[in-house]
Amino acid sequence: MWPDASKVAAKEKSILQFEAQENIHLPKSYKELIRLQNGGLLRKNLLKTSEPTSYGFDFLEIYRLFGLHELITAILFQDQNPLPGKKIYFSQDNNRFLGFDYQTSDPSILYVDFETLQVLPVAENFKDFLDKLYDAEFANGELSTYSHDKLEIMLQSRSVIAQEAILAELEDDADKEWYFYQLKKLIAAGNEESAYRLFENQILYFKRKLPKETVDAFFPLFHNQTEKWASLKKEWEDNY
């Protein structure tokens, strides 16, 4: 279910409080999941649809399942295009949402794209939704247009060479904290050389955009590159 298991579970008291606050019952299969892990990236991340979506001709993509604390009970721009009945959304990709549709006692699963104004039932209930999920490798495509969730799923399933190629293409990503987190994961997985090459490019070409504290803390992580990074550290300190 989870490619990156955090093993943080939702507390029963919090589940009961949320249900009482919203005057609903969350689906049993959803509660069973969050009692084991309270949300995260999904291993299976595609779902067949009965009509085209902005993802493709007959499918949609889902990258992350929200935990209890992330569930969305109201969307500001939904006021312009109100939907009947109570909705609680458990996944989001920009203006595209998946949610529990409480027009039935056992909520069905609804896909809503507020940009194209598409509203599409995709499963009879949450268990049915989980059963229908499948996985396939995402094509590289326009990586800079992908969400960080989608990129992380791709990175987790690729070889070290492929990971380095993806991160090299994303070298000008504006969220440098996210980017350096990916480099740290490369190091933790034993791929220090790949991480160092990417780190070096950041120092040489993007130094003015980099968070100083994050970079300063990064140099000591390269235990096998001490001879190389001495001059790179000087370059960083002299020109920041």
Rank of each mutant, 00 (worst) to 15 (best):
S105R: 11
E19P: 04
N95L: 15
A74E: 15
D175Q: 06
I34P: 08
L98M: 13
P121A: 08
A195I: 09
Y55G: 06
Q163L: 02
E237Y: 15
E192Q: 10
D238L: 15
N125T: 01
F90K: 15
V160M: 14
D131K: 13
E19A: 04
S157F: 00
S194T: 03
Y63W: 15
I72Q: 11
N45H: 15
K13S: 10
L76W: 00
L143S: 08
W178Q: 07
K150G: 01
G67F: 01
T116M: 06
A139E: 09
A139C: 03
F77A: 03
L167Q: 08
A20G: 09
G99M: 04
L210P: 04
H223Q: 12
L65V: 02
Y89C: 01
E213H: 11
V215H: 00
Q182W: 11
K44I: 00
S6A: 15
E169S: 09
L155K: 02
L155H: 03
F180A: 04
L46T: 09
Q37T: 13
A165Q: 14
I34M: 05
E200C: 08
N140W: 10
V160D: 14
L98C: 14
V122I: 15
L76T: 03
T145R: 08
S194Q: 12
F126Y: 13
G141I: 00
L71T: 12
P52M: 05
R208D: 15
L186Q: 10
F18A: 10
F199W: 01
T104R: 09
L16F: 08
F219M: 04
F100D: 14
L143W: 02
M1D: 09
I153N: 09
L186V: 02
S50L: 11
E200F: 05
S105Q: 13
N191M: 08
S91Y: 01
S159F: 06
G141H: 02
W236P: 05
N95W: 12
T49C: 04
H223Y: 07
I153H: 06
G67R: 02
G85M: 04
E32G: 01
Q182E: 08
F100E: 14
A217N: 11
D173W: 02
Y55R: 07
L183R: 03
G39P: 07
N140P: 06
I161P: 00
G67D: 04
G99F: 02
E192L: 03
E200T: 10
Q37D: 13
S144N: 06
S157N: 10
P107L: 05
Y205V: 01
E32W: 01
L143G: 09
K209N: 11
